[in-house]
Write a protein that binds this DNA or RNA. Structure first.
Lengths: 363, 363
DNA sequence: ATGAAAGCGCTAACAA
DNA sequence: TTGTTAGCGCTTTCAT
């Protein structure tokens, strides 16, 4: 019954609707109708069909269905780096809403490479997914996204927008998150606050810097050039720039910062590594606050003051909007949703030492 | 040109092969042949077709192709918990090999719920994925997997096997990992070593315990019942059981362990939290070693002695085997590959204090 | 070297 | 209430 292929690999053929119909002694239309509940079928035939399905271990061919109805009920989430602990929660949120509404969500990883993103998006288009949730790796080259949109695939941006692409987006209110965090540090008595930013050619990077600047301006603290260090959201830049800050001579005279605001969690890990190597204690020697992105709050000191992103909710809302779009429930202009971050104050931002910070102590 | 649907949502229709053929002034067979390179096409026609494709922004309908050729070139990876930092690297490995070999890998998350796993696997079967990589959440109920296999979907198990399902598997050599780690602790002078296991009804849980027992036996150290604590691989059980160990009266007389071997990284986070709360220092007060599963080595003390799993490689090999199976390159019996863990010795397992451990000190 | 046409498994309009 | 049949967009024989 199972045809042996030329290479010797034997695969059972899946039963088709025709075989089910034959076995149940009905037409294929009837089978289709009992499966999808499209129209009334007598109890008797219904039962016959059910039995046949069971006996044949039949699973409807969604591929064939998709071809006919011109929709796949597949959604895709495209991420720059699944290794970044910020994303898994987003996936969960999106997956949950997708499932609830009868869609299947798949995930793919671009590894922050625009070339890979292009390949993936192209594949997704070929597979005719109904929509994609995208946290884009792209900077400027977005032709692949445009042609995808043109061909009718719904798209919502997540976390980051894509310049020049007019589409829905779910973003964090980055300015607000950064502003409130830096405000808090100022209130704790810090005046010389350094920032390790993300890449300034990406939106989240820029926005968080803006929040920092706004907080300083509110407090009439001049933004000093040497305290703004551009990182790239990766571990190494946190390490390198953290080190650079610490190695400046301590004390008010030198202008060495008493606090650092780090724009994502991965870089913070780097900063902490630098702290450890140089024997810097936090918050005694220098205060620290961060955007989250950390998998777990470290069980060790210092517990970090953190701008927390509602990742699950972001995923869920994005998926919701995407599906609404697909189903034509919203037909207006693209909308941008800004979700609010939460500042969680912990001990890493306690007040600085009186009389200036201690000089670095090797432990 | 784009038909408005009843709900007002306007989607551009994607061009089909027929339209491309028409525009290029050739038959659809020719279009298909230039796309797939199936047979020689004259340079002239080739160029006409290429131009038409470009002008129409044509993307071949993979759905239709799949229906015809009866394979989708889609693979799926089904995971219990994408939030566990052990998995993202596995995904990367699998994704890379899949891409290289012309397959597309999607990921889905069961949330450790068998019901959800069943739904996902069913969906995957309907979508006719060519194969699935599975780190199963299932304990005993595996009928959904069997019927999937019966219907010709290739399956390889990852990290954990599924009882009663005869299929390929890529597993860690858990016994060896645990054995070598505990051996190391013994060599460091520890004799009273506690273990926080995984759930003993899952294979990895059992195997790691076995490694522990073997190491003790080799050293003629009796395995004491009270030192074997069954966890469940989750944060809370690490916290609870870690606390339980620490709260025993210290000293040799009481038999309080001088070292703990924790069977996964997430539980270790819990143990460390307990340590912190109780002011226990590591390794001064008690030594600690763990199976990895941690996203990053904590930048703080103690740096943990760790059994590292080659996650990327596991994903890559599993995908390789899966594809070989699909393509009929291997047709023999299912094989199980055991990959070797690596023990990384760090300071958390330094020798215990002479004269028994210090009593717990609040910091 | 190219084209015509059958058919993959399904849904939905039309008939009965 | 049920059945028949025309495609969905592609690949692939079979002709030419």
């Amino acid at each position: 019954m199972a045809p042996a292929e030329e290479n010797g690999f034997v695969a059972e053929r899946m039963a088709t609707i025709v075989e089910v119909a034959k076995r149940a002694g009905v037409s294929i239309a009837t089978v289709s109708n009992v499966i999808r509940g499209t129209r009334r079928v007598s109890p008797k035939l219904t039962e016959q069909v059910r039995a046949a399905i069971r006996e044949l271990n039949y699973s409807p061919n969604e591929i064939a269905r998709s071809l006919k109805v011109r929709q796949t009920r597949m959604l895709a989430m495209v991420l720059p780096d699944i290794t970044n602990p910020f994303f898994p929660e987003i996936i969960r949120g999106a997956e949950d809403t997708a499932f609830e509404r009868g869609y299947f969500l798949m995930t793919a990883n671009t590894d922050e490479q625009i070339g890979r993103e292009r390949r993936i998006v192209a594949a997704l288009r070929s597979y005719r997914v109904d929509g994609v949730l995208l946290a884009s790796a792209s900077g400027t080259d977005t032709t692949h996204l445009k042609s995808t949109l043109d061909s009718g695939v719904a798209l919502v941006c997540l976390d980051r927008t894509v310049p020049g692409v007019k589409t829905d987006a779910v973003l964090l209110d980055n300015v607000r998150g950064a502003r409130e965090c830096v405000r808090h540090m100022i209130q704790k008595g810090h005046r010389r606050i350094a920032i390790i930013t993300g890449p300034l050619d990406v939106q989240t990077g820029r926005e968080r810097l803006r929040g920092y600047e706004e907080a300083l301006r509110e407090a009439d603290i001049p933004a000093v050039q040497g305290r703004i260090l551009e990182g790239d959201f990766r571990h190494d830049s946190g390490y390198r720039l953290g080190k650079q800050i610490i190695e400046r001579p301590a004390g008010a005279a030198s202008g060495r910062p008493t606090a650092i605001f780090v724009c994502n969690g991965v870089m913070t890990l780097g900063v902490l590594k630098a702290f450890e190597e140089l024997g810097v204690r936090c918050p005694q020697d220098i205060a620290l606050a961060t955007f989250d992105d950390l998998a777990v709050d470290s069980p060790f000191h210092p517990h970090l003051t953190t701008v927390v992103q509602p990742s699950y909710e972001m995923g869920a809302r994005a998926a919701g909007i995407l599906i609404d779009r697909i189903e034509g429930r919203i037909s207006k202009e693209p909308t941008t949703v800004r979700v609010a971050p939460t500042l969680i104050v912990r001990e890493s931002t306690d007040a600085p030492q009186k009389g200036g910070p201690r000089s670095k102590s090797r432990s």
